[in-house]
Simulated assay, not measured.
Amino acid sequence: MKKIAVVLSGCGYLDGSEITEAVSLLIALNQAGAEVSCFAPDIEIPAMDHLAGQASGDKRRLLVEAARIARGQVQALDKLQTKDFDAIAFPGGYGAAKNLCNWAEKGAKCDVNPEVKRVITEFHAASKPIGAICIAPVLLARVLGDKKITITIGDDKETAAEIQKTGAVHEECPVDDYITDREGKIVTTPAYMYDDAKPNEVFKGIFGLAHELVEWA
């Protein structure tokens, strides 16, 4: 059975992992026959009020928030050992651009969380597949852009232009499909980069991504 690591960025699309994307990924990976383990950085993050759509004023532990999605079965990211897994995947949500890095603030010049950078670098160096959903592909662009990897975040021209500044290649993709970089062993899908996407469309793209990951692993 292939072992896949999933890196969460919190819980909730405004300040963490997008829940539909994360759950779709977990289901699709299991459907593809993989054993999944969840990880998240153990850092403090500013929280959002998802009803009001604005900052709540309090702070929370990202690892504790991620445990909501993982049903408590989540480990700190510094515990992730590349040798123990066949592939790694990152769901989207603003947490990927605010907590795992600060792309939301600095774009192509963003800083990436050291543990996130470590695992991306290690998996790529080991030629192990990497998947990223929604805005999460910007993590791969920032860390691996000099490798000329090909990724997608859909058809958002502003974000695509910023991605190209990293050296990565952006390819447009509809919500229910995915893009593969076979040489780099990277697979990405836009998901809720399309704001008006339906859950079944998001799942279809993630389903394809998950099965591609497991096939490569």
Score class of each variant (00 low, 15 high):
Phe39Asp: 12
Phe39Met: 09
Ala40Ile: 03
Ala40Val: 01
Pro41Arg: 06
Asp42Ala: 12
Ile43Glu: 00
Ile45Lys: 02
Asp49Ser: 15
His50Phe: 15
Leu51Asn: 15
Leu51Tyr: 15
Leu51Met: 14
Leu51Asp: 06
Gln54Tyr: 07
Gln54Met: 07
Gln54Asn: 11
Gly57Gln: 05
Arg60Ala: 15
Arg60Phe: 02
Leu63Arg: 02
Val64His: 02
Glu65Thr: 12
Glu65Trp: 02
Ala66Cys: 13
Ala67Met: 01
Ile69Asn: 12
Arg71Thr: 04
Arg71Val: 05
Leu77Pro: 06
Leu80Met: 05
Leu80Asp: 07
Leu80Phe: 15
Leu80Lys: 11
Asp84Pro: 02
Phe85Asp: 07
Ala87Pro: 00
Ala87Ile: 05
Phe90Val: 10
Pro91Thr: 15
Gly95Leu: 00
Ala96Gly: 06
Ala97Phe: 07
Ala97Tyr: 14
Asn99Cys: 11
Asn99Asp: 04
Trp103Pro: 05
Ala104His: 12
Lys106Thr: 03
Ala108Asp: 10
Ala108His: 09
Lys109Phe: 12
Asp111Cys: 04
Val112Met: 05
Glu115Asp: 15
Val116Ser: 05
Val116Ala: 09
Val116Tyr: 04
Ile120Gly: 00
Ile120Met: 06
Thr121Tyr: 05
Thr121Gly: 07
Glu122Trp: 13
Phe123Trp: 04
Ala125Arg: 03
Ser127Ala: 07
Pro129Ser: 03
Ile133Arg: 13
Cys134Arg: 06
Pro137Lys: 10
Pro137Ala: 09
Val138Asp: 11
Leu139Val: 12
Leu140Asp: 11
Ala141Cys: 05
Ala141Lys: 07
Arg142Glu: 11
Lys147Cys: 13
Lys147Pro: 11
Lys148Glu: 05
Lys148Ile: 11
Lys148His: 15
Thr150Phe: 06
Ile151Asp: 15
Ile153Trp: 12
Glu158Asp: 14
Thr159Ile: 08
Ile163Cys: 08
Gln164Pro: 13
